[in-house]
């Protein structure tokens, strides 16, 4: 019995399982020079199914998938279907309000997305009681920086210091909000999980990450208007969807009429951190091991792929 003649009424899962058994070396997907066979596809989909099952996903549960066309999309979809769960794929261009609606309406138990979207998902997560797990994939980062328009603040702390992630989001958010108010943005507001806004527009954003025994808090402040035109020409985006790629942003300069000088930013940030964490902050420099790592990472960062 050949898979071809028998496959007429098969669904996606049955077909892939059949191809994996009968023609394991046939290429199913090609991605960035890699050829993924039906056997490998089926095995990885099994791993997703096992992983999701381990998280308590059962037949009929909704699994939201917010991914572009990368192999992980296919593994996630097939794995979800193998479990008898319902896949809810949705547009990777969707932003806050739209995602909130889809995740709420579908009652998704799990969301699989790119790491890039972590800050956005974080912000709406408290509104989604049904969402038990967020699974992130890829080291995909798209970050713009512009002289005088962006300031980056990174806090590296011992992970054990943070007892409660939700509380940490609240605390850091309050500190960032304090910075914004001190810089004259009176209308700024913060509710939870990573975005400080003026009206509906973002003026600062942050995410708390973990690696081994450390916690990293990454904050981006928008000090002046961001000209995204250059970046959109470099990272090609069709003109008609440009508005959807970049979230509506505002900045200290747009809100107050002037861009704060760096010294003021430094003092304001340091004061807010000292006050918020009840700690003394001193100017310092790299220690030996860090200098070594810096040289290595920096040379890697500009190495084109």
């Amino acid at each position: 019995m050949s898979a071809e003649s028998d496959g007429k009424r098969s669904d996606l899962v049955q077909s892939i399982e059949r191809w994996a058994a009968s023609l394991p070396d046939t290429v199913a997907l090609r991605f960035e020079g890699e050829a993924i066979t039906y056997e490998a596809l089926n095995r990885r989909a099994n791993r997703v199914a096992n992983g999701l099952q381990g998280m308590g996903v059962e037949k009929g549960d909704r699994v939201a998938i917010m991914l572009p066309n990368i192999p992980e999309f296919v593994y996630a979809l097939v794995g979800t279907l193998k479990l008898g769960a319902v896949a809810v794929p949705f547009n990777t261009l969707y932003k806050g309000g739209e995602i909130l609606h889809i995740l709420k309406d579908s009652g998704a138990k799990v969301l699989i997305a790119l790491t890039n979207f972590a800050p956005m998902i974080n912000e709406i997560r408290p509104e989604l009681p049904a969402l038990e797990q967020v699974i992130l994939t890829g080291e995909r980062n798209l970050l713009f920086a512009h002289p005088e328009s962006t300031a980056f603040l990174q806090l590296i702390l011992q992970r054990g210091l943070i007892k409660d992630v939700d509380g940490a989001y609240r605390k850091v958010g309050d500190i960032v909000l304090t910075v914004m108010k001190a810089l004259g943005v009176k209308e700024a507001w913060y509710k939870h999980r990573g975005s400080i806004r003026v009206r509906g527009d973002k003026i600062a954003t942050f995410v708390i990450s973990e690696v081994e025994g450390l916690a990293l808090i990454n904050v981006v402040f928008f000090l002046g208007p961001m000209d995204t035109g250059d970046f959109l020409r470099v990272a090609w985006v069709p003109p008609e969807i440009r508005d959807k790629v970049v979230e509506p942003l505002t900045s200290v300069e747009q809100e107050t009429g002037h861009r704060p000088p760096w010294d003021q930013v430094k003092e304001t940030v340091a004061a807010a951190l000292e006050e918020g964490f009840q700690v003394e902050i001193k100017e310092g420099s790299f220690v030996r091991d860090e200098l070594f790592a810096y040289e290595k990472l920096r040379s890697l960062a500009y190495k084109a792929r």
Partner: peptide
């Protein structure tokens, strides 16, 4: 490397030129 465990670190920085930090799968037109 060493036994120095550094305390909390605060890094505050900007850039002097326009730049993109891209992930491996972001299509960049060089």
């Amino acid at each position: 490397l060493s036994s120095t465990v550094t305390p909390g670190t605060v890094i505050l920085q900007g850039v002097s030129r326009k730049g993109i930090l891209a992930g491996v799968d972001v299509a960049i037109d060089h």
